[in-house]
Design a protein around this nucleic acid. Sequence first.
DNA 1: AATAAAATTTAGACAAAACTAAAAATATTA
DNA 2: TAATATTTTTAGTTTTGTCTAAATTTTATT
Lengths: 219, 219
Amino acid sequence: MSFTTSEENYIKGIFHLQQETGLVNTNSLAAEMQTRPASVTDMLKKLKSKKLLQYEKYKGFKLNEAGKKAALDVVRKHRLWEFFLVEKLKFDWDKVHPIAEELEHISSEELVQRLDNFLGNPSFDPHGDPIPDKNGKIPVIKQQSLSEIPFKKNVTVSSVGNQTAQMLDMLKHYNIAIGTQLTILKKFEFDGSLEIKVSKQNACIISEQVAKNVFVHDV
Amino acid sequence: MSFTTSEENYIKGIFHLQQETGLVNTNSLAAEMQTRPASVTDMLKKLKSKKLLQYEKYKGFKLNEAGKKAALDVVRKHRLWEFFLVEKLKFDWDKVHPIAEELEHISSEELVQRLDNFLGNPSFDPHGDPIPDKNGKIPVIKQQSLSEIPFKKNVTVSSVGNQTAQMLDMLKHYNIAIGTQLTILKKFEFDGSLEIKVSKQNACIISEQVAKNVFVHDV
DNA sequence: AATAAAATTTAGACAAAACTAAAAATATTA
DNA sequence: TAATATTTTTAGTTTTGTCTAAATTTTATT
Ligand SMILES: [Mn+2]
Ligand SMILES: [Mn+2]
Ligand SMILES: [Mn+2]
Ligand SMILES: [Mn+2]
């Protein structure tokens, strides 16, 4: 089965939302996709007729197995292209998302497989998100928010929660990236800020907001 | 100015035809684009309103400077991606055209510039066609059809005229690619076939049809 | 339980890009 | 030059994906 760019974007949007909420509703998908609820309803009918989702009027919806398979395929392509853009073309990690948003719709199966091999079959994209393999299998890692880590414990940054360009740009200025090692030195009770030591740099202070969106695992 | 995928494909098609004929007519563009003359007329109106071509009803049409610039930009992207697919992903040269036909529409300017650098700013694509630089400048080489070359002269293959997958697949089986050195040993008057010696392989025979579509330059 | 609010769907419209069939313009030929 | 053939354009549809406004259904509140 093959899908249009628009169908693929919706499928991916639904997949993303149902990870958190199980059932998805029309308004939240419209917000996610930056479109109107009426447009979502139209697309839901089409995706249902293509047997990609369970959907009853007014009752919410979610992808079935075929839909999840399709979603994982788009996610795989998105993340492989992001990896390519950062590792091979030396893009900054806060610039690659919109480009991958286009590249993920290139249809050739063989292209994806060869790209995967060319890149060395990476397991995580530049933001620390797992890259599904060609069967849709996703690697899992145990990670915690930096806001839950005790003082003086050495940890490695594994992924980023909020992946807006604004957030990623900020982390870039802190010299924080996937794989960066750091330790928490102190918590300021006033606003929940954390003083942290990033690898061999001077200590610096990050807001609670930032800390909550940085995920880490043991060194 | 930015264009839709369809607009870009038409612009490229017109550019290709006007290289040979100067003025282009509706039916030949329809044939080139595998579409209907009525669809061509529709698009011509749109491209004229975008000031990309000179066009008077029933009188033929051709790209103006803005149109040529746009065409060269698409051609540049197409050929850079083809180079990437063959040189980095190890695709055979007869498989890359349809994939590049999609990739050429990815919009990021920075992507093209970084890809160009990553590839080492190549001057020719895998089929020997010149890659325009970012200003639209095209490298030229002096080349002749293999059918016009005298016997025993050592020449290097520089490009292919007919680039259908069928032709490219055939040349692959002859072990003929861009850069291959060869010599003509004999011409058969019966059907114009040529006996040629390809680098260090055994002599072989190619049809007049093939010879006419292989372009070569001095070693 | 009745009413108000929010969420969702339907109805109808629009733009892009294609198509077919018919009309109009141009080119060819007798 | 008149008749015929070819080329091109126009008129009217279709499909996909979007939108607004209105109607409907569900949920929350008095
Ligand atoms: Mn996308
Ligand atoms: Mn990512
Ligand atoms: Mn194309
Ligand atoms: Mn080529």
